[in-house]
């Protein structure tokens, strides 16, 4: 029941949009929990492709990495 990649990307973005009101950054794990019928590796690949496409961005917590939608919530760059 492998999901088609575009479908998976759509689901990830849907999840991210829904989430971003309350909490703008999520872990890979959170995506995996939200989309249980896709394999962790496929989700990882799709999410990383979304970053390449500029639809998502990475966000560092110091020792781990989260995903966010560019421009939403806490900014990656903290000037001032």
């Amino acid at each position: 029941m492998a999901m088609d990649k575009e479908e998976l990307k759509r689901k990830i973005m849907e999840f991210m949009e829904k989430k971003s009101g309350a909490k703008s950054k999520v872990y890979l794990k959170d995506m995996q929990r939200a989309i249980p019928d896709a394999s962790p590796r496929d989700i990882k690949k799709a999410a990383n492709e979304l970053v390449q496409e500029g639809k998502l961005e990475y966000f560092s917590t110091g020792s781990t990495v989260m995903y966010g939608i560019p421009g939403k919530g806490q900014p990656v760059e903290q000037k001032g």
């Binding site: 309350a22 909490k23 703008s24 950054k25 917590t61 806490q74």
Partner: peptide, 10 residues
């Protein structure tokens, strides 16, 4: 300056 759910999760 912070997103409270992220701080809680940290």
């Amino acid at each position: 300056v912070c997103e409270i759910p992220l701080v809680v999760a940290a």
